[in-house]
Amino acid sequence: MGKSKELVETVAKVAAAATGATVADSIDFKPLVKEAQKSLKRQPGSDLSQDQDLRAMAQAAQTLATSLAPIRNAYGTGHGRARIPDVVEEMATLCLESALVWCRWALRRLGHLLADYPNDLIAAVQTGTSRTALKKKFDAAALAQQPVEVQRRIGVVFGQQSAGGFGNATEVGVEPAVEGGRDDYPIDYRLGLLEGMLLTAGGAIGLTDSYAPWFVSLLASLPEPAATDLLEHLRQDVIDAPWIGTWRRSKDVTPVNVVAALREEGTRLPAGYADAFDDLCSELLRTAGADDQSADE
């Protein structure tokens, strides 16, 4: 039990140091583990991922780890004792397994963080890499095996580049996801595509009417809870966001036309999406300073 606690403490210090967190040498065990867990949090989102259940599981692993300290103090090595404490095998086994649950999670998480897998692919799609080379990098990224926040981050960049008019991003990362093969294009990647298609890297509304069919097709491919959550998230993001004036400096962007195209395509969406989708469309019009006539039509 003493070694289990020491293992968690070592991994926590490694994680904190590797991610640049500052922890005092004298920090207590529980705050140390919490600081390490905090340092392993990654964007996007305010926690470990966008998935509530995954966050709960990670938090549960932290609770298991921090529970080792009082048990070790009462029963484990590291303290002089007048008598040998009565330790049953079940107690020792449970402490070891609890330590390993958190340590394995933390080290795998740290590996993804330090390797920063998406950077090479993201740099490639942003710098005009040839279609063949981009496809090779995309396939090598093994998207379905990446953490969900990495999937989403890659999706955002591909969506932004595609909506911005870069054909390689469209042909490699967007069109195949729209047309099918959903096992190869996970939900969080598609969520990222939708976010990137709507909002530019600078936070402007960059969707054009020609992209409305793809936007709606991707939205329709999502399970209802994920789709409605995303629509509300996007509605909040577009509040007070500016619209782009032109597409690739050659085509004027008219917000009213974009929203009209979205609503026309939106008739293909399941009924459960309707309210959240209409709220987003109405906010897009309001942001553009246009009147929303949909309620009268």
Rank of each mutant, 00 (worst) to 15 (best):
G2R: 15
K13Y: 07
G20E: 04
A21D: 10
V23C: 13
A24F: 08
K30G: 06
K34N: 11
Q37G: 09
Q37M: 09
Q37L: 08
S39Y: 06
L40K: 06
K41L: 10
P44T: 11
D53R: 12
A60T: 06
A60Y: 07
T66G: 05
P70C: 07
R72C: 06
N73W: 04
A74I: 10
Y75M: 14
V87L: 11
E89I: 09
E90M: 11
E90K: 13
M91Q: 12
M91L: 14
T93A: 14
C95N: 12
S98K: 09
S98E: 07
A99Y: 03
R108E: 07
R109A: 04
G111C: 10
L113C: 03
D116R: 13
Y117N: 11
Y117A: 13
P118D: 06
L121Q: 07
A123K: 12
G128Q: 14
G128W: 14
S130F: 09
R131E: 15
K137V: 09
K137M: 13
K137H: 12
F138V: 07
L143W: 05
A144H: 10
V148D: 14
V148S: 15
V150W: 10
R153D: 08
R153S: 15
Q161W: 08
A163M: 11
F166G: 05
T170W: 15
G173T: 13
E175Y: 02
P176Q: 05
A177Q: 02
E179M: 13
R182M: 02
R182L: 14
Y185F: 15
P186Q: 05
I187Q: 01
G192L: 00
E195C: 00
M197D: 02
L198Q: 00
I205H: 01
D209Q: 14
P213K: 01
P213A: 03
P213L: 00
P213H: 01
P225N: 06
A226N: 07
T228V: 13
L230W: 01
H233R: 15
V238G: 03
D240K: 15
I244G: 03
G245H: 08
P255K: 08
P255S: 08
V256A: 12
V258H: 00
A261T: 03
T267A: 13
R268I: 00
L269Y: 03
G272D: 00
Y273G: 02
C281A: 15
L284N: 01
L284E: 02
L285G: 04
G289I: 06
D291I: 06
